[in-house]
Amino acid sequence: MKKDKILNLEIKYLLWVLLLCPFLVSATDNFIKYFYDFIQSNVNTRIFILQQGMKPGEQLPLTTPPQSYLKNSPRYILLKTLEELGKMPVGDKRQTALYIPQSNKLYWNWLKNCKSVSFIAPAVSGMVMIDGLPAAYCNADFYGYESYTLRTTKQLPQSKQEICNNAKTKGFSHVIIIDTDPNQNVVTQEISCYK
């Protein structure tokens, strides 16, 4: 009888350990990841400050606020471009689609989570994006992507005619292409698909 109680008690402890183990492993993994990201961000900030010609311990000058650095950032300019497109009249938006080629690393590498990047342009601009699925290497098996045929190969460069043909099959008469030049400057081009 006493042996059965000890055995039952050991099984209960074993079950608790088995239930808690995945939680503890996950919590530890998350802690390490966020701690590592924090340290990496801290080091990057210190490198940036040193690159500005400042000495360790010297305070950032108040005459050059971080906002001035932000306004010259290529991603900030890209975000502002998308916001400006969001101000288009609704009637024009219904006829116009966005196309952002995957060669535009400024856009497609915006977030670490490759599954989420496709949603930035439509969310900020309020416009439809054509050929806006994540890259082939991105394991996009949720977020609603299962409704689409996902990429299996790298996106190939497309001519304006190919982009227009794709847009016309979806009912759009105009396409705004958002790309970058070799210096990572944002370049937009509007094309009419019915010339």
Rank of each mutant, 00 (worst) to 15 (best):
N42C: 09
I178W: 02
E190F: 06
P101Q: 05
S68T: 13
V17S: 04
L78R: 00
A140K: 02
K168H: 05
A140G: 10
D141M: 04
A27E: 06
K12S: 15
E146I: 04
W16Y: 05
K160L: 13
K105Q: 14
V175G: 00
T96D: 08
V25P: 01
C193S: 01
D131A: 09
L111A: 13
I6R: 15
K154P: 06
Y76D: 05
L79Y: 08
N165D: 12
L62K: 13
A136R: 09
E58W: 13
L111S: 13
P182C: 03
E84L: 14
S118G: 07
K5V: 06
Q40E: 13
K112I: 09
D179G: 11
L20Q: 14
I163V: 12
M129R: 07
L79A: 06
L79G: 03
Q155E: 15
R75E: 09
C193N: 02
F31T: 05
T96Q: 06
F31H: 04
D181W: 11
L70W: 09
C193Y: 08
L7R: 12
G132Y: 08
G144P: 01
P65I: 13
H174V: 06
Y194D: 15
D179R: 07
N165L: 09
S159R: 04
L78P: 01
N8T: 05
V175D: 00
I6D: 15
V175M: 01
Q161D: 10
W110Y: 10
N165S: 10
A97C: 11
L50S: 09
T149P: 00
M129G: 08
T96P: 15
N166V: 11
S118H: 03
F172V: 04
I130H: 07
Q189R: 13
T152M: 13
V25S: 08
N30C: 10
F142L: 10
L106Y: 03
A167G: 03
K112H: 11
